[in-house]
Design a protein around this nucleic acid. Structure first.
Lengths: 262, 262
DNA sequence: TAGGATGACTACTGGTGAGTATGATCCTAT
DNA sequence: ATAGGATCATACTCACCAGTAGTCATCCTA
């Protein structure tokens, strides 16, 4: 089980500058060289360097988190050591610890990074002036893209058991927030007639489940782009949720009890 | 992080015999006491005891696997030590190793146990003389119940990275078999007109994803029984898949490309 | 140009957990 | 009653890995 040390140095954004010199292309050097140039804040004043350094630090920190996400995505959380992550960035473990306090927090940050994408989708959809079903479609599209991103795996597979209770609660709260957002859209759709009658809770579970599961198979089968997957799923969901003209006919196989209340 | 040692001895089926005596209620003793009585094979002959012992062994082995499944379900695979599993059965680690060769195999067995439930569902559905959509419903019902079972978590969360390549391939093959089975039913439904036109591959992914995801939240929210959940999901799916009388209107939000080919 | 802040490395510790060597105990068969 | 197999426990080994102590190098600020 030889640990594969891929020797690429930390590369903040997607900067593909071939840094071959072992000493010259030190982590700090590369980052500063690429970042300090764009002084996008009005800064003819003191502590300019300090601000720049802080920005550098932020960029590097994000690089660490993204590297962690990729590693977790590839090998799983428990099979990834911090040495692996450090090696992927071509630094050593203490350097990673300089940017992040522990492994747990690393996982948490990956989770948050993924969630932000979903939150953004909600935000955008909120401004759309269309029936709720179409706003839901927009959200689910963003959701699908997020799940297929680098952070998708972390977002979907965080196991509460791996985290301290504090962080676990935090994550639960965020997940619940998203769940409630989807349920709300479904309810609104049922009210404005753009979605057929259904149980919002269970339907939200079903939708989120489908999308979350993308994180499990996407890595295997790259034949489709994230956007294509998103569209394919939306087509399916939209077909299923759109109200029917004919009166509803339950038609459940298996002796089922009355439709779930609530 | 004190490991909670619950001191209950191995209890093969769900036998709730209060075995308090530390030495008398030895694992073997309990098992034989409860199992040897039912001589369901015509056995007035030699080697009877031998057969009984083998049956005992099998029962105990299954108890180990079930205990492992529960532990994995509760704490996650990597956070569960074999000492934990042994403690749950009130035996020691070497005993567990006596019935199973290593932790990896334990996970694999849990997976298989779950899959068998799904296979059974396929088997039953095959004999139904109804449209494919209803056979699909039956399969999905069994699927949902399996995912909500003790083995659901293991079945759903096995990460190929945790297993040797041989076992990993084995599991992939089994998963693929199930996936293909669902796709086939969808195709048949489209052909016999009981399911509306759709992309079988993606639809199968969506359905399986929804159901797999049950394993993530079911443990939290026991307000519904497994059967209730299965029925609720079938209702949703059935609503979505049933063909529409009105001509199909794609109506995708977002500038989507032409519907996925194949 | 000294001194502080920052960034990174070497070399450890401590804990944990998978798997095992060895042997005790009980049951069965001859 | 005794050899031999089945079953389980005690008490280890060994490897891995999260996290840390202490140190050095470099850059910025004063």
């Amino acid at each position: 089980m030889a640990r594969s040390i891929n020797s690429r140095r930390i590369r903040p954004a997607a900067t593909a500058r071939s840094s071959s010199s072992k000493s010259a292309a030190r982590l700090a050097g590369v980052a500063r060289g690429k970042l300090a140039v764009r002084a996008d804040a009005p800064d003819g004043s003191p502590w300019r360097a300090r601000r720049e350094r802080q920005r550098d630090r932020q960029v590097k920190r994000e690089a660490v988190i993204r590297a962690a996400a990729r590693a977790f995505n590839h090998k799983g959380y428990h099979n990834t050591s911090l040495d692996d992550i450090a090696a992927a960035l071509d630094v050593t473990k203490p350097t990673v610890y300089y940017y992040v306090s522990n492994k747990e927090q690393l996982l948490f940050e990956c989770f948050v990074a993924g969630v932000e994408l979903i939150r953004a989708a909600f935000q955008q959809a909120r401004n759309l002036d269309v029936p709720a079903r179409e706003r839901l479609n927009a959200v689910l599209g963003g959701y699908a893209t997020a799940v297929a991103s680098d952070f998708g795996w972390c977002m979907v597979r965080v196991e509460e058991q791996d985290l301290s209770t504090a962080m676990s609660n935090h994550i639960k709260a965020i997940k619940s927030e998203i769940d409630q957002g989807i349920r709300r859209l479904i309810r609104e759709g049922v009210q404005d007639g753009s979605i057929q009658q259904c149980d919002p809770k269970m339907t939200a579970f079903a939708l989120a489940g489908s999308l979350n599961w993308i994180a499990h198979w996407y890595r295997e089968d790259r034949s489709l782009s994230a956007a294509q997957i998103a569209d394919a799923f939306i087509t399916i969901f939209d077909n299923g949720l759109r109200p029917r003209v004919s009166p509803r006919r339950p038609s459940r196989a298996r002796g089922a009890p009355a439709p779930l209340a609530r």
